[in-house]
Design a protein around this nucleic acid. Structure first.
Lengths: 187, 187
DNA sequence: GTCTATAGAGTGATAGAC
DNA sequence: GTCTATCACTCTATAGAC
């Protein structure tokens, strides 16, 4: 019984799902145990720091997922339009068309911001910066690209808020549409 | 029978502040007692349904605040530009320039959405609808006004998310700026 | 034997309800 | 203030791979 039943990746995926659904304060150890099919002792073996260390690891996991799914395609795109299209596609599937929440945003709004501020801040800074570099590929001045990127990320996050609040996915999908066609709204 | 030390309005204001800072799950009865200077028994006298009823009452309170501070000025404005300026001013002070969170948004993202979905949905629907009617005053077609309103609310909510996440108020203030000057971004 | 992952009884503290 | 349930967490034990 020594081999790990779950890979660390799979474990983090399941923990992420619990935190996304219940938030940090709302997620109990029992929830986390059930999601991973692990007992308390096993969870504490992997995360000696308890719930806090789990959340920290999950936030790092999310940033790795974004690096692979969003940031890398943005960097590799040759034109801004291509990059935006790739990002839009990735976000649509990652956020399940607006039904699923952005964990760094959720934790940033709540009280857990105090404990995880650095990871949350890093996540959004990296997103906005990477996006700005992509927009600069079309010759947009650096400062303008930064503002446009901030607006796009804000629009997307607001789209998720509205989609969740209204119980409809359209607000999120329309926000993605605006990002894909920045003729209206990016400058 | 003693006179209650706090008016109901004042009580709701203080409860709101706790829920804004800690979220629904994160707010404990002790937190709520301290914020209101009330004992458990007194709190349960005012809200027999416990924490859930407090949150319900606080959400209704927030909608009343918005009605007075945001929706009414929007309705009374003679031009869209005047309405947007009034809304922008009200939001800047209500959200303390981005340092304070929007409770319906926070609760909509978290698990408390299940319990308070109706109030959260109503809040945002009302906001978007009122805003769309204001934009229609300048002759914008109804459907376009609805999309533009949704985008504005999304941009503002995203601005709050980013302001909190990054620990800077500028993303929120810039979102308000875009709302005030809808030449870039509203259509 | 050692190391690693799983397991679960049991701790005190605190939760929300009444 | 009193209640019980649940909280996050500790500790010790065990099973199997090396």
């Amino acid at each position: 019984m020594r081999k790990s039943a779950l890979s660390r990746e799979e474990m983090l995926d399941r923990l992420l799902e619990v935190f996304r659904q219940k938030g940090f304060e709302g997620a109990s150890l029992v929830d986390l145990m059930q999601a991973t099919s692990l007992q308390k002792g096993s969870l504490y073996h992997h995360f000696p720091g308890g719930k806090g260390e789990m959340a920290e690891a999950v936030l790092a996991h999310v940033e790795r997922l974004f690096e692979a799914m969003v940031f890398a395609p943005l960097r590799e795109a040759t034109t801004a339009a291509n990059g935006l299209a790739a990002m839009s596609r990735a976000l649509e599937s990652y956020f399940a068309s607006g039904a699923k929440v952005c964990l760094p945003a959720l934790m940033g709004l709540g009280a857990s911001r105090d404990q995880f501020g650095a990871a949350i801040e890093g996540f959004f800074e990296r997103w906005i910066d990477t996006l700005a570099e992509t927009l600069a590929k079309d010759g947009m001045p650096a400062e303008q690209a930064l503002f446009a990127s901030e607006q796009m990320v804000a629009d997307i996050q607001g789209g998720i808020v509205l989609a969740r609040a209204l119980g409809r996915t359209e607000p999120f999908l329309r926000a993605l549409g605006r990002v894909r066609a920045p003729t209206a709204g990016a400058e």
